[in-house]
Every structure is written in C-alpha cells, then in structure tokens.
Design a protein around this nucleic acid. Sequence first.
DNA 1: ATGAAAGCGCTAACAC
DNA 2: GTGTTAGCGCTTTCAT
Lengths: 343, 343
Amino acid sequence: MSDDTATHDTVTGAPTLEMVATVAGVSRATVSRVINDSPRVTPAAIAAVERAIAELGYVPNRAARILASRRTFAIALVIPENTAKFFADPYFAQVIQGVALELSSTAYTLSLLIAPEADAEKTRNFLQAGNVDGALVLSHHSDDRSYLALARTLPVVFGGRPMSAEGGEGYYVDVDNVAAARHATEHLVSLGRRRVATIAGPADMAAGLDRVDGWREALDAAGLAADLVERADFTPAGGADAMRRILDRGVTIDALFAASSQMAAGALGVLRDAGLTVPDDVAITSIDNDYFAQNATPRLTTVEQPSVEVGRTMARLIVDRIEGRDVAQVTILPTRLVHGDSA
Amino acid sequence: MSDDTATHDTVTGAPTLEMVATVAGVSRATVSRVINDSPRVTPAAIAAVERAIAELGYVPNRAARILASRRTFAIALVIPENTAKFFADPYFAQVIQGVALELSSTAYTLSLLIAPEADAEKTRNFLQAGNVDGALVLSHHSDDRSYLALARTLPVVFGGRPMSAEGGEGYYVDVDNVAAARHATEHLVSLGRRRVATIAGPADMAAGLDRVDGWREALDAAGLAADLVERADFTPAGGADAMRRILDRGVTIDALFAASSQMAAGALGVLRDAGLTVPDDVAITSIDNDYFAQNATPRLTTVEQPSVEVGRTMARLIVDRIEGRDVAQVTILPTRLVHGDSA
DNA sequence: ATGAAAGCGCTAACAC
DNA sequence: GTGTTAGCGCTTTCAT
C-alpha cells in the first residue's frame, strides 16, 4: 500500500481515480463502476465513493477515459450549408445553442461540422472513422440520403424530417411546418383578408414544401384562391425579389404569408417602396420569431418555433441513443403564434 | 519482435504509432520525435517515417497524446458577452470562423467559453486549472485586467487591444479603429456633407472610444463641427434610439457616421420614419461589412474590417506562442472602405 | 459485488 | 541521433 499517503499528499495536480479509491476504501475498479454507473455496485460502495469524489473534488480525466474505453465522448453536429449561410442564419445559431446547452451537463463534447454538400463525402468518412460517438444532422436538403445511410452504422438524430426518408426511417426532431403555416395563414383570414399571397421557401427543403401546403390548406378551407406563390431562398434579399415578382403580377393583395421572417423583412422594404403600408394595405405573417421578426418595422406577427428546444432535444436523444436507452423516433415540438404589428 | 506482423495484419482499428515504427524500421520514440518535429532526428529517419505514415494513413491518437504529454491540445476562445448577444453579433461569428479555420489545420481543438463578466472568475479558474494550452480573449470591455493577469501564467492572445493594458503588456490583434472611422467620415466630407453626426459605441470599449476619435479627427481636419455624438450599444435597437435622440436635437444633419452597421441599420428605419431619405437627405457610412450592411436598404457604404482574418491571426499567434516560437506583440490588420448606396 | 492486473497509444526521461 | 522503458489515468476482462 504505497498509496495510503494519498490523503496526506499536498495535491500536486488534479485528484485521480486512485486517490478516490483510497479515500473511499475501495478498489479503482469500483470507483470506475460508480462513475460509469454500472448496476453491479452496492449502495454502500456507491455512497462511499461519491463522498470521496465530493471531498476531493475529483473530475475524471477525459483523455484517459477516452483512451481506455475506446469511445470518443464527442458528438458531431453536421450543418449541410456553407459557412457564410450558416453564420447568417439565426436558426442554426439557436439550434447550436440548444445543443451546446444540453451537452454541457454531460460528458460529451460538441464537434461542429459545417459541410457543404460538396465535401459531404469527407464529412461522412470522418464520421464513419470513429471520430465521434454519434451525429446530429441538421437536414434541410433533399440530398440527405447519404446521412440516412450513415445512420445504419452510427447513432444519428436529424433536425427536421429527413426528406428522402422512406416510412419509418431515421430518428428526428421537428416542428409541424404544415400546421405552423396554416395557423399563420388562418390568422390573416380571420382578419378578413381575402387575397393572400405567399413567399415560399426552396422546393428541396421540407420547410419549403410543407409551409406552402399549410398556407394552401388554410385558404382552401376558407374558400379563397391559393394561386399567388413565389419561391425564394429564405434570405431577405430573396424575399424582396419574390415580393417584387408578386407585385409585378398586377393583382392587388391584402395579405402575405412569408415562410420565414428573413424573407418577410425583405418583402417589407419592397412594399414600402411600392407605397403600400403594413398592415393596413397588406397584412403580413411569417415563421420564425427571430431577430428579423423582432426588429422589423412594424414588428412581425409570426409563428415561433422553439429552435433552441429543438437543439436541446436532439442532444438529449443522441446521448440516450449512444448510451443504449430507448427513445421515440419522431419528436414534434409545438409552435405558437406571436402577435406583432404586421397583422 | 512479436510485432513484425504489423504490416501483414488486416488492419482492425486505426494504424498506431507502433505500426508506423515497424514499417519505417525505427523505434516508436523516433516516430514520436518526427511527429512532434523534434530537431534531433536525421533526415533519413524523417523521410522513412513520413513515408510509413503516408502509406498507413496514420493519424496520431489524440487522447493518447494528451494523456502522455499532459498537454491538452485545446485552445480556449473567451467571449466576454452573454449568449444572446454573442449569437446576434456577426463580428463574433466571423472571428470564430477564422479561429476555427486556422485551427483545423493544427492538432489543436477549440473550446468556446462564453463568459459574461458575471462568472468571469469561474472562467479564469477553468483556464488556470490547466484545461487548455492557451487562451484567445475577445476583449472589448475595459474590465479585462483579470485576463491580462491570466496572461502571466498562460499564453494568451487578445482580439482587440486590451483596454486596461499598460504600455507593452499583452499580445493582441486589432484593426486601426481610429483610421477606420476617419476614413468613413472623410468619405462623407468628400461628398460635400457638412453636418456629420455620429452614433458611437459604448465608452468602455476601445471600438467605442477610438471610432469617435477618428470621426472627430476627420471633421477637425475639414474645419467642421464635431458636436453631434450619441452613444449606443452597437445593436440596431440602440442605434435607432440614438438616431431619435440626434433628430430630437432639432439640428438638420446631412450625414451620419455609425460606429457599427448594426446601429446604422437601426438608424435607417428612424430616418425613414422621419421622412428623410438616404443618401439624399442623409448620407451614411459605418463600420463592419456584415450581414446588416449588406442587407440594409440602401446597402451601406461601410468600412470592412477583416474579422475572419483577425480570428485566423489570433489562432496562428497562440499556436506559435504555445510552441515556443517568437511572435509580434501587436498585429494591426488593414481595413478598407466598401462602397454601397448609402453614401 | 469486488479486486487484481493488463492494457488503451503515446511521450519523455534516460541510457547508449 | 536513436532505442528502451516507464508510466499518463482510466476501463475492462477475469477471477474470486
């Protein structure tokens, strides 16, 4: 027992598992079992070890753990967009924030992979190579088949329904985009608006397709025409262009549903330049209670989706899956209409 | 030599240093020396090892390195702002992007620390505790003394001149804020504008103080009055408020220099509401060629600071310092005026 | 349920 | 300049 000096030592570096073992009066193996909450330890041993851990302020050495266990304690968050777009979009920022928040209370570390489809292969190789214990994929393009394939060899959780998923494939967290769009549009209708245009998102994204569907559902239900659709790319500039195209059609609209607040923000300027006031001439609703919605003039009436919560949930699910716990394959988070001054 | 089967093995996991040693016909120590480019290795040995590494596609195991070397291969990026502000500000995003970019080609990993001054102490403890090999501090508040102190026990590189630094203290990367503001203002003057107001940043930030100085220098040189200053907090909402205060003074201005494009974006709406057009009634220049500058209507004429490059440079410097190489204490990066439609 | 002991893949003295 | 040899702090069989 050359180690029984542990408790007397003036601690040089950080306390080690061995010191905990000595203080608790058990073996290193038992301490390890407690740390990794193995089921085969007596309550008494657990208590002793936990007391020792608290007393010493022990924190397991990450590198040693990784080396010995041949796990990585790393989780990848894959963003299939280029860097510029990624940083410009508040949605990503919020999801990441949620993931980081949730992970901070676990042993897992976040490894951010901003992977334009261009080198998607490089990204998948990295993931396959055992660099992470699991992956979170913010899937937005229809081109997510490869990540779906990846999901067969590595725990993966998608953010947003993977578009190429056949029935029952893939774990994902999402909001009900159809319902969100429907609510936003219904609000315009309930205000007495009859000629409701929409600026939709790209046709290769679920949020692009589903939100047009929701808009159409609401108008159909009200017996109104659903023929004024222009697509854009979710950016303010794209929204402005789409708005111009709508005005160019020469029909008089009294309402607009934009599939994102960024696009609504762009449309706002075009309407103003055309001499139309919001909400008097044109009422507007959109999706995303983000920076753009909150800082627009007038403040947008918009559907808030819990993006931070999406991130948290994704993180929670991937950890559960990595550690072998059962989780729901599909998690749909609720949205809510936030009243601004644009409708 | 029970290991001479290495080259014949059907590779199970990743290739190890030991396999490289066998293939290269040297000892593990030599391989290690090559990897860590120790000076005491013969060119021949280096070549052999490098060939073996390439042949096997060997990548050093991070955990093992960390464990054996008692280094962390981690670099902290400290952001002394709260999470919300951090995510809303494109400047941070760009600097991080630069840091990540540069670090991706090194063995170092980025550990993001978003540390409101509130728990600055916790942050410093973490840094002192040997969790990272070096720290990057995005210093903006005058309250950076503590990090300056930290710099005596850990390699630290600041982003932005540390405000509380006495002469010669601290390594930092910055732009010439005075010159940037001067150029932006001179441009307004060169357009024939005579009544140039400014929306300045907070008085406890270098960018807040220096940019007012630059504005004043330009006006003084032109013999114009430099009396219209309102301070804000670099956000659009703050900019809008400041703009209102300027208008409330009742003086007619024909130009505005905003210390950030975010604030200029906020000011834009207020001017519009006041029935003033940009640039006809009021010409505007600002600093930061970011998302806000590019998506404002009209597009802002602004001074671009190379934020991504600031990040890259900070990363390069900290790695050099960690590895014992000599680096310049002060690095000033150039800025340039980008012409938009606001002036 | 617990302990003993053998590594995980690498670095760093220390000898030659 | 290069090899030998102990570990780094932890997990994980395998006994007991």
